[in-house]
Amino acid sequence: MRLAQGRDRVVAGGVPVRGFVPGRVDGVYLHLHGGGWMLGSAAGQDEKLWRLAEQARLAVVSVDYRLAPEHPFPAGPDDCEAAARWLVANAAAEFGTERLLIGASRPGRT
C-alpha cells in the first residue's frame, strides 16, 4: 500500500527511489527491497518503512532498482550502488546528517 508520506524521486542520474522523512532526522537508512533483483518495488513496504522512519528518526531512502529479466544482472545491483554513492555524497545537504545505514529485506517478510 502506497502512503502519502512517501515521496518518489530520481537520484544518481536516473535511479528511482522512494523516500520517507520524519520531522526529526538523526540518520539516513538506505533500504534495498527484497526480490532477488527480479521482484518487488520500493513502494511495496511503505507502511513498514514509514514506521521505521518515525520511530527511529531516520530518513528512509528505498531504491526502486531495475528488475530482471527486462534489465539483466547487474542492472539492479548497479542501481543500488549508484544510490548508495549518491547518498554518501549528498546526505548532509539533503537530510542534515552524515550518519548512514544500509539494509535490505527478504521477500514475504514483514
Rank of each mutant, 00 (worst) to 15 (best):
R2P: 14
R2V: 15
R2F: 09
R2Q: 15
R2D: 14
L3D: 12
L3N: 04
A4K: 15
Q5S: 14
G6D: 04
G6Y: 02
R7T: 11
R7D: 02
D8L: 10
V10K: 06
V10W: 06
V10T: 15
A12G: 04
G13L: 07
V15F: 06
P16L: 09
P16T: 05
P16A: 14
V17H: 11
V17T: 08
R18K: 06
G19E: 15
G19R: 11
G19N: 05
V21I: 10
V21L: 01
V21H: 01
P22K: 05
G23R: 08
R24Q: 14
V25I: 06
G27V: 02
G27E: 01
V28R: 01
L30D: 03
G34C: 13
G34T: 13
G35C: 10
G35S: 08
W37G: 04
W37T: 11
L39K: 02
G40R: 09
S41H: 13
A42E: 10
A42F: 10
A42H: 04
Q45K: 11
K48G: 02
K48R: 12
L49C: 12
L49M: 15
A53D: 05
A53W: 03
E54H: 01
Q55L: 13
R57H: 12
L58W: 09
A59E: 04
V61Q: 04
V61F: 07
S62D: 13
V63R: 05
V63D: 06
D64Q: 07
R66Q: 10
R66K: 07
A68C: 14
A68Y: 08
A68Q: 13
A68E: 13
P69C: 11
H71G: 12
P72F: 09
D78L: 14
C80R: 03
A82H: 03
A82K: 13
R85P: 04
W86F: 04
W86A: 03
L87N: 04
N90H: 15
N90I: 00
A91D: 03
A92H: 05
F95Q: 01
T97G: 01
E98N: 08
R99W: 02
L100M: 05
L101F: 15
I102C: 13
I102R: 01
I102N: 00
I102G: 14
I102E: 00
G103F: 06
A104L: 04
R106M: 14
R106A: 15
G108K: 08
R109W: 11
